[in-house]
């Protein structure tokens, strides 16, 4: 799993980072969590602790980034949602009309767990096809029970397959990011001297649409779009 740490060593680093956090030595705590991540000992728990440490340090952008990554990897959790709410409350930006135009598929995939969907599809699909094979070898009098079970499995496999396809599509096409810099200017064109359209601030969640040079086109949840410096955002 890791090139450098055994599980015991990773646990030791994790506990020491927690102790540093407890004595409000946030820099040491942050370094500990980041060391675990860089050595392959990540996960939702480490990311949550890192986000909370960033939040305690006042680094709103990286706090939201880590917490969103923790949610993406480990799903929703009460403490995670609470700290995300605290981070949102500290944000400077207030996006008006943010929920009106949120797309259907991202909402569906956000509401379901991709791994569970994938396993469900795989299990039911393989099971249904195997039962179909068995059904072929059975004599007509013994086929009914096997056929019913196979049909049920197909009934689960088809929608779960569609949901899995939605996950795959969102994974490939929807790129969400968090603003890291305190102030990020969105311009009309991907040029440094282009007219600025609006400003966003650390911690705001945006969507990356395309990239050219050192600029990315960002879209706010309310549909507002502009070109911003690539370094100012980090993909979740």
């Amino acid at each position: 799993m890791s090139e450098y740490y055994s599980p015991e060593e990773a646990q030791d680093v994790f506990l020491k980072a927690n102790e540093a956090y407890a004595r409000e030595d946030y820099a040491v705590a942050q370094a500990g969590y980041e060391k675990l991540l860089s050595h392959g000992h990540g996960g939702a728990d480490v990311l949550y602790n890192l986000g909370t440490t960033h939040l305690a340090r006042g680094d709103l952008g990286r706090a939201v980034l880590s917490l969103e990554q923790a949610r993406k990897q480990g799903g929703r959790a009460p403490d995670l949602e609470a700290n995300l709410a605290v981070a949102r409350a500290r944000q400077v930006d207030k996006v008006v009309g943010a929920t009106a135009e949120e797309e259907f598929l991202p909402r569906v995939t956000a509401a379901t767990e991709g791994t569970v969907v994938a396993w469900t599809f795989l299990g039911t699909w393989v099971g249904a096809l195997l039962l179909l094979l068995v059904w072929r070898w059975l004599t007509p009098g013994r086929r009914t029970g096997v056929g019913v079970v196979a049909a049920l499995l197909f009934a689960v496999a088809v929608p779960s397959g569609l949901l899995l396809a939605a996950h795959a599509w969102v994974e490939e096409t929807v790129h969400e990011a968090v603003v890291l810099t305190p102030t990020l200017v969105a311009r009309e064109l991907p040029q440094p001297g282009a007219r600025s359209i609006f400003e966003v601030h650390a911690g705001l969640k945006v969507r990356l649409l395309e990239e050219t040079g050192r600029f990315v086109r960002i879209r706010l949840p309310n549909g507002l779009e502009g070109w911003a410096e690539r370094e100012g955002v980090a993909e979740i």
Binding site: S2, D45, N49
Partner: peptide, 18 residues
């Protein structure tokens, strides 16, 4: 702020199942 988690399940970065 909610406190940090005192136990962790370490997971290496992994691709989606599919």
């Amino acid at each position: 702020l909610r406190p940090v988690r005192y136990q962790a399940r370490f997971v290496a970065p992994a691709e989606p199942l599919w």
